[in-house]
C-alpha cells in the first residue's frame, strides 16, 4: 500500500555543531593579531655614554686605574691597546667575513676580560671607511653573549670602599674583586645548569674553568 513520504519513519539525524560563530571570532582574532605580530626580532646595542672626550679632571678612582681597553678598527687591522700606558696588547690583520678571524678576535677579547674582569668600558676608534656591518660584529664580540649576573657597578664600588677601609692596597683590591667576580659568575652558572637539569658531575666539569661573560658592554665611540 502506498503511504505518504511524511508518514514514513525518518532516520534520526545527529545535531551538528554550528561552527559559524566560532569561525567569526577566530577570523576577527586573526586579523587583530596579524596587525600586531612582530615576525622580525629587533634588538639594540647601546652606547649610553656620549662621544668620548678627555675628562677635564680625573676622579681618584680613575687615577688608580691601570687598564682601559681601546680598540682601533680599520679595514687593514684591529688593534687592542691599553690606552693608559699605550701598550699594544694584540694586533690582527682584518679579514672580514672569515670565521677564523672572528674567532681570534673573540678569544683575545675573552683573554683580556679574564685578566681584567672588573673592567667593562671600551673605547672604540673606528676608521671612517669601515663598513657598519663589520663594526657591529666587533661590538658583538666586545659585548659578549651570556648575560649571567655579575657584580653590578654600584656593588663593585661599595665593595671597593669597604676594602679600602680595611687598608688594602689597590692591587690587592683588584685581585680580591676579581676572585669575588669569578665566584659570583660560578654561582650564577651553577644555578643556570641546575635549572637546565645537568648532573653535579657535568656542572663541576663546566664550572672548573670559569670565564667571565658579559664582557665590555660600556661602549664609547671616540670622536
Amino acid at each position: 500500500m502506498y503511504s505518504l513520504p511524511s508518514a514514513r519513519r525518518k532516520k534520526p539525524t545527529a545535531d551538528k555543531l554550528n561552527l559559524t560563530p566560532i569561525l567569526d571570532v577566530v577570523f576577527v582574532l586573526i586579523f587583530f593579531l596579524l596587525f600586531s605580530v612582530q615576525l622580525l626580532r629587533i634588538y639594540e646595542i647601546g652606547s649610553d655614554l656620549p662621544i668620548y672626550q678627555e675628562p677635564a679632571e680625573s676622579t681618584p678612582q680613575q687615577k688608580k686605574k691601570k687598564f682601559e681597553l681601546k680598540v682601533y678598527v680599520s679595514n687593514k687591522s684591529i688593534r687592542f691597546v691599553n690606552s693608559l700606558n699605550r701598550k699594544v696588547l694584540e694586533r690582527f690583520d682584518t679579514d672580514w667575513g672569515n670565521e677564523e678571524f672572528e674567532l681570534q678576535i673573540e678569544q683575545k677579547i675573552q683573554e683580556i676580560k679574564n685578566e681584567h674582569p672588573t673592567e667593562r668600558r671600551v673605547v672604540i676608534a673606528t676608521h671612517k671607511k669601515v663598513i657598519y656591518n663589520n663594526l657591529v660584529m666587533i661590538l658583538d664580540k666586545l659585548r659578549g653573549e651570556d648575560r649571567i649576573y655579575e657584580m653590578g657597578l654600584a656593588e663593585q664600588e661599595k665593595r671597593r670602599l669597604e676594602l679600602e677601609g680595611e687598608g688594602k692596597r689597590a692591587e690587592e683590591i683588584d685581585d680580591i674583586l676579581n676572585e669575588e667576580m669569578l665566584e659570583q659568575r660560578r654561582i650564577g652558572l651553577i644555578k643556570k645548569y641546575k635549572e637546565q637539569g645537568k648532573t653535579d658531575e657535568e656542572i663541576l666539569k663546566l664550572t672548573t674553568e670559569v670565564k667571565i661573560g658579559n664582557l665590555f658592554n660600556q661602549i664609547i665611540f671616540e670622536d
Binding site: 634588538y43 646595542i45 673606528t126 657591529v136
Partner: peptide, 22 residues
C-alpha cells in the same frame, strides 16, 4: 654613522641605540 651621532649629540640626543636584527 659618525656624522649622524655627532648631529644627534649636538641636538641633545646622547643615548645612541644601534638597532639590529636577531
Amino acid at each position: 654613522i659618525d656624522k649622524i651621532m655627532d648631529i644627534s649629540a649636538d641636538s641633545g640626543y646622547e643615548q645612541f641605540k644601534f638597532i639590529v636584527i636577531e
